[in-house]
Structures are given as structure tokens and as C-alpha cells.
Amino acid sequence: SWQGRSIASSKLRMLEFSAFLEQPQDPENFNKHLFVHIGQSNPAYSDPYLEAVDIRQIYDKFPEKKGGLKELFEKGPVNAFFLVKFWADLSVNLQDDSSFFYGVSSQYESSENMIITSSTKVCSFGKQVVEKVETEYARFENGRYVFRIHRSPLCEYMINFIHKLKHLPEKYMMNSVLENFTILQVVTNRDTLETLLCVAYVFEVSTSEHGAQHHIYRLVKD
């Protein structure tokens, strides 16, 4: 039921994704602030399919040369491609403090035992500025294979970017910067090089009092 209704291909399903800041309060407690978050969902067959976005509308927001989004999509499988619009929650006080931890956690599940590689490319004006590649092994839990990328440290580029964004006085200025800031995450089967999931992330700043928000779309080519 989750295919077409959540970030899932026939081989891999994203269960959770978050980017966060942990600020210690005292030796035993810390505050966790979520910049962006996709929580666990259990869509039913009665739920509608995700809305579709024509992938050609966003090609230029991501790397376009060899191995770019167009080439990846042509390689397929087409059901592995998604667009996430995040409304990031920046309503947090940031200080330069080495005890602060900026991290990303994500979880995936599959019916197959495999080794996955996650490539995360941060792009400015569609050009890659930094890439993180992580390899994860499966753990068999409750009849399926689970992959956890737990508390992966956010890179210096991203921490500086968030700080600079926070220093802008108005939300429209932040959104103007974010218009040219994107992230492309590609999860592949390390051994077969098959694309398992490809998620294109675009951003605005949240105006909500309820924290980070998001919409998920299927990427299609009509």
C-alpha cells in the first residue's frame, strides 16, 4: 500500500528522515530541535496516491552532467524518484558552541538483504558543492531488513549555511536564498548499483507554529 503513497520503490522504503540540532541543557538532558522531519507513516490502499511533478521542471536545480538527475531517471526504475518540499523550522537560537550536535538520521526498510549506499549531494544553483557517501548494512528485524543511518554529523558547509540563513532578517530573504539551494539523495544497492530511491529536496522556511512541514511528490515524465 505504501508504493505511490510514500517514499518507496519496489525495493526500498524510507521510514523516517530528520535533520536536527541537539543542545545540551545539563549533563543528563538536551533539547532536540528538528529542522526538517519526515515521520513514520502507514498509508492504506484507501489513501490517495502522491501528487506527481514532472521531473523536467526541476532538472536544472540538480546536477545535470554525467550521473545527473536526468541520466539517473532515464536509467530508472521510475518508481524510485521523489520530490520533497520541506518547510524547514529555523525557530531555534543558534550559538557557536562545540557542545551542540548537528545531525541527520534516516531509516529505510526492504524485503531484501543487501548493502546500501546513500549519496547526499548539496547543490547551489544546481551545482554540487559537497557530497556525503554512506554505506549501511541491513539488520533483520520483525521479518524485514532495516537500514539505519543514525546521527550522521552534518557537514561544516551545512552548519555554516544554516547559521548564515538564520542571520537574514526576513523570511522572504531566507526563501530567496533557499530557492537556489537543493539536496539530492540517491540510495543504491552497493553491489548491483541499482537505484533504490532518489529523493530531490527543495526548501522554504516554515511559518508554522507546529514546526517543520513537508509535501512529498512522485517525480514523473509525462
Binding site: I38, Q57, W87, G211, H215
Partner: peptide, 24 residues
């Protein structure tokens, strides 16, 4: 076929793309 430097607002995107949900 890429839209080039067209602002996101001028692209063919669903209306929901510009509507922040009240809660996720």
C-alpha cells in the same frame, strides 16, 4: 527541456507546492 533560470513560482508545479501544511 530544462526550464533554465525560471523562478520556481513560474514553473508547472502543483498548487500544494506553495501551501505549507498546518501539521505533517
Amino acid at each position: 527541456s530544462a526550464p533554465g533560470h525560471i523562478p520556481m513560482r513560474k514553473r508547472q508545479l502543483p498548487a500544494s507546492f506553495w501551501e505549507e501544511p498546518r501539521s505533517s
